[in-house]
């Protein structure tokens, strides 16, 4: 039985990186979890340098966790991944409004 989720995550810090790259994380998991929880686990337990917006309204309304998951814009709080699965995670927009990794700026007209 599979016990890991594999995440391929877009990384880019414009202050220090010449260009964006993807970093692969194998996250141990005994059950399904949301992409947001997955990112939280990666940041806490594997790679402290990962930046993402961890805020979550629980309603799918605030759009804080909107990102590209397997190349489609989705809410990370409610996109579920299962052990054995692979997932590609990218910022909602790039290079427009991009800050770092998965973090983008909220436009004034949002």
């Amino acid at each position: 039985m599979n016990t890991h989720i594999t995440a391929n995550v877009f990384r880019f810090n414009p202050d220090t990186d010449r260009e964006p790259f993807y970093k692969k994380y194998r996250v141990k998991s005994d059950g399904e979890m949301s992409v947001l929880v997955l990112l939280d686990r990666i940041q806490r337990e594997i790679d402290q340098t990962l930046s993402f917006r961890s805020f979550c309204c629980g309603l799918q309304m605030c759009r804080s966790c909107l990102m590209k998951i397997n190349h489609k814009k989705k809410f990370a709080c409610l996109t579920i991944v299962k052990p054995g699965e692979k997932v590609v995670i990218e910022p909602a927009t790039y290079p427009e409004l991009h800050i770092k990794d998965l973090v983008v700026k909220l436009p004034d007209k949002e």
Binding site: N13, P14, T16, Q43, S51, S54, I99, K100, D101
Partner: peptide, 11 residues
């Protein structure tokens, strides 16, 4: 201790 970069450093 947090990583040393400045931009959106969650830790």
């Amino acid at each position: 201790s947090a990583p040393t970069f400045r931009r959106f450093n969650l830790e």
